[in-house]
Design a protein around this nucleic acid. Sequence first.
DNA 1: CTAATGACGTAGA
DNA 2: ATCTACGCCATTA
Length: 110
Amino acid sequence: MSAYHTIYAVVRQIPVGKVATYGQIATLAGMTGQARLVGYALYRVTDSLEVPWHRVINAKGEISESPFRHGDDHLQRTLLEQEGVQFSPEGKISLKDYLWQPELDSSFEF
DNA sequence: CTAATGACGTAGA
DNA sequence: ATCTACGCCATTA
């Protein structure tokens, strides 16, 4: 079981209409402080893996894109808007309202 | 085996 | 608010 798979498992727990930060995912995956790995893992997400990667944003509440990621440009924003996430005029997300707050649902098996 | 690489976070100026 | 520097590690070729 790769470490990246663990990250994917956590990302899958993000409910619709909510978002999570890289650092948050890292913590939940048991690698506190390693937000980078989360980003690296998401970069390598493929279609075969069913991961809601679009619900993961950076700590500033903004969307981070990579030129070579998926082929699509602002697809992430589009997907989030479809889920009811509102963006500020600055293109940021209100973490105060949309940040995923894992409660007692952290029950996933590996 | 080694080298390259990649969606971040935090602190300080 | 913006910018710079640094930490830091699994996965791939």
